[in-house]
């Protein structure tokens, strides 16, 4: 029981890393971004390209950290470029049209990855000292999962501080509440949008980069994670970072318990939970009618 709960929490934090950027971008731009999965995948391939483009043999920790940070920032650069070129124009479309626009972008990113790296699964080794496990309270836990949980907590606290304790956060929340009034008040809303989008894509890239030791890299990683991430941000409440965290951990634990006690539910539990929560609370667990929460 404790073992499955712990495993579920570890899994939930990886999902939270993906979902946090997604819900942040929704909060400010009101756009549910399919291509977020694409940035996640790119983060993974950038790390692969940096550390493993020879033979995957061993990976010193400092090199891995460097590659993860570099990979996440590189994804942010791609994010800024796509925001300027494409998203600026997508914002003014209706919610469904913009959803489809970002789906188009997801296809483009996935296709480009397939052209560059092919579809053969690739992987990045665990950085030295992190490919092990320790026993906590009679439960065997991977050290890397503990690192992921730690990074997830740092990201959550960092986002909270950024949004509620800085001038930038104040502007971002104001734009999320009412973009029009902000423009009248002289706020550079375009700059705020670009910054938030860059931050969101960096988080996606970070998630993908950190996920590399735990997944098989293929172009369809982009779609494999996005459906779960959507479920999380919607159940958590669109625009709510704390809601995304609760939902991510909830899904992770529920999936883990399902596999342990009733395996036929694995893979289906996501949809059942999402369905039930939305029927009871269509606005999601933590919600703010407009803006970030």
């Amino acid at each position: 029981m404790l073992g499955s709960v712990f495993a579920g929490i570890g899994d939930g934090f990886l999902l939270f890393l993906i979902a946090s950027g997604l819900t942040l971008i929704f909060g400010v731009m009101r756009i549910l971004n399919f291509s977020h999965g694409g940035y996640f995948m790119l983060g993974g391939y950038f790390v692969y390209q940096a550390v493993a483009s020879g033979s995957p043999i061993s990976l010193p920790l400092p090199l891995f950290v460097l590659a993860v940070v570099g990979g996440a920032l590189a994804v942010g650069v791609v994010g800024i470029a796509t925001e300027r070129l494409i998203f600026r124009k997508i914002y003014r479309l209706s919610d469904i049209a913009s959803l489809l626009g970002t789906f188009g972008l997801l296809l483009v990113i996935e296709g480009v990855a397939e052209i560059i790296w092919g579809v053969n699964p690739m992987s990045v080794p665990f950085p030295t000292a992190l490919g092990r496990s320790i026993v906590v309270g009679g439960v065997r836990v991977g050290t890397y999962s503990i690192v992921l949980i730690a990074v997830g907590i740092v990201v959550a606290v960092g986002l909270w501080a950024l949004l509620w304790r800085t001038a930038f956060g104040e502007r971002a929340r104001a734009v999320a509440e009412d973009r029009y009034v902000c423009e009248l008040a002289g706020v550079n809303t375009a700059l705020v949008s670009t910054s938030v989008f860059a931050l969101g894509t960096v988080l996606a890239g970070l998630g993908g980069a950190l996920a590399t030791p735990l997944i098989a890299l293929t172009p369809d990683v982009a779609t494999a994670f996005i459906i779960e991430a959507f479920a999380i941000v919607i159940v958590g409440g669109l625009g709510s970072i704390s809601g995304a965290m609760i939902a991510a951990i909830g899904f992770g634990v529920a999936d883990s318990l399902a596999i342990t006690y009733y395996p036929p539910l694995s893979g289906v539990i996501f949809f059942i939970l999402m369905f039930v929560v939305l029927l009871v609370r269509p606005q999601g667990l933590v919600s703010n009618a407009r803006g970030l929460a």
Binding site: G3, T260, P263
Partner: peptide, 19 residues
């Protein structure tokens, strides 16, 4: 352990084998 094709998290399956 029967793993769905769509699974992104295999740890629970691994734990059930280890159990």
């Amino acid at each position: 352990a029967f793993v769905p094709f769509t699974a992104t998290q295999d740890t629970p399956f691994i734990n059930s084998l280890l159990a």
